[in-house]
């Protein structure tokens, strides 16, 4: 289980250069599940992911993963991102441009059998000798997923992975991600501002409103309003 209780003061450039806002996150995530962190743009979803990965340091609080303390401000504990064992899929995928796809996937090390399994599961076999700039957005995302999973992470963080995709590609990748999660059930947090992503991919959801995690529970329940509004719009049109 992942237990999080952190806060971070952020500078709000949008309001005024000197204004700051306080981001508060308190939630717990069950192991081996996909959980969505859902909220509008600018709420601080990515910052929460970055704090979980150790890329941004919270001002105060505690992060505990499978009873291992990653961060505790009261004891000065802050485990480096290199040793947290987190798989991070960045919004722009962050594939290394000077390397082939094979070298990208193997960059963090890992078992050769897992490599073969991942490239088969994600259909990357024919792309291994190509460079990232020769791949489509969907293919790049699959490579980023494979690279993150090669280290057998205890926690997989996906930062708006479907943000710049059209609906048909999104649907295909949703199906692939569900399939992949059935095969390799790693604890996953998916950040999205699209309730359809949340509904299709996760059983549970954490809702972020006014820079704080306000509610946590079954995705369908927390998205009732969005779904009914959507159905009303369909009925009206």
């Amino acid at each position: 289980m992942l237990k999080v209780e952190i806060e971070k003061r952020l500078r709000s450039v949008a309001r005024s250069p000197d204004a700051s806002i306080k981001l508060c996150a308190k939630f717990a995530v069950e192991s081996s599940q996909i959980t969505t962190l859902y909220g509008a743009s600018g709420e601080g979803k990515t910052t929460i992911l970055r704090m979980l990965a150790g890329l941004t340091t919270p001002d105060a609080g505690r992060i505990e993963m499978e009873e291992r303390l990653w961060f505790d401000s009261s004891n000065g504990i802050n485990i480096k991102p290199q040793v947290r064992g987190v798989g991070f899929v960045f919004q722009q995928y962050a594939l290394f441009p000077a390397m082939t796809i094979e070298r990208n996937i193997k960059y963090g090390g890992g078992d050769e059998r897992l490599f073969i399994r991942l490239i088969e599961l994600l259909g990357l076999k024919s792309l291994l000798q190509r460079r990232p700039d020769q791949l489509s957005g969907g293919e790049q995302q699959r490579v980023a997923l494979a690279r993150a999973l090669m280290r057998e992470p205890t926690l997989l963080l996906l930062d708006e992975p479907f943000a710049a995709m059209d609906q048909s590609l999104k649907l295909r990748l949703h199906a692939e991600l569900i399939q992949l999660h059935l095969e390799i059930p790693v604890t996953t947090i998916l950040v999205t501002h699209d309730w359809r992503d949340a509904l299709r991919l996760s059983e549970t959801m954490i809702r972020l409103e006014h820079h704080a995690t306000t509610r946590q529970g079954p995705t369908k329940e927390l998205l009732k309003n969005e779904v009914s509004r959507f159905l009303e719009e369909i009925a009206r049109s």
Binding site: A53, Q82, R84, F90, A94, A98, Y107
Partner: peptide, 28 residues
């Protein structure tokens, strides 16, 4: 992009390794 460097860190690689294996080859 800073995300390239950060991706390398989350993949367990040190700053020195990242400099020589990711940053310098990218800006060759």
């Amino acid at each position: 992009p800073e995300s390239l460097v950060e991706a390398s860190y989350t993949l367990g690689r040190s700053k020195l390794y990242t400099l020589f294996r990711v940053q310098l080859p990218t800006i060759r």
